[in-house]
Amino acid sequence: MRPPRARDDLRDAWTFPFPGLSIARSPPEERPTFWTRALGDPPDVYGERLRARDDSFWRAIDPFRSKLGAALCKGLRVLPIPPRARVLYLGGATGTTASHVADLVGRKGAVYVVEKSPRSFQRLLGVARRWPNLYPLLADAREPRSYLPWVPPADTLYMDIAQPEQIDLALTHAKLYLRPGGGLLLALKMPSLRRGRPGEDLLGPAVKELSRAFELTRPIPLEPFHRGHHFLTGVYRGRE
């Protein structure tokens, strides 16, 4: 993947190993566990495993709950969530993954979380009160302009919305919010795109469409953690 143009110093922060992410392998043959340093107090959000180290709590990312965690377990090697980044997070649900992303960007970063469902948002708001860098927005990601006044130009776009127009929304949001050279993380839910015939390739056209604006890495299938999902990462080339 080509390194981001605007801030080359990010290049090291994007590639493995990632700052702010601790990896434990015990016993060594098992799959690794990824830990983020908790910013919130009390530190647990969804009943995840906790560990105290260096005067702070570290939270394990549950790959079965979080698509980001699953992608890390399946060998994600490019993570455009460096410290101090501004992240626009679409589809935050109850704040499971969003809180880990907020841990990764640290106190000087900010995560703007968009969630549509009022019931999920209730719990997200509870998490946001404890995480000083988490900003919740009760809005619909299918109307990208409705939260324009709240969200500054972003370094990273994280999308986890199971919608047929996922790809179009990624392109629209990138145009409106993402700075050139910014990162994309996209959990693509294939069954939501459309009802394909058995054995039909839905991923290929989606990747091709996205490649118009992003330089993508190889999609990571999230089996066995999440069925029918692929995780895509990429760099925004900029507005044409």
Binding site: Q122, L125, A128, P136, L137, L138
Partner: peptide
């Protein structure tokens, strides 16, 4: 200009949620 007004945003979220629910 982009310094987030956290108090404002959180209370806007609260009011919006209340309205929706």
């Amino acid at each position: 200009a982009w310094e987030p007004d956290r108090e404002l945003l959180l209370s806007a979220a609260e009011v919006g949620l209340e309205e929706r629910l």
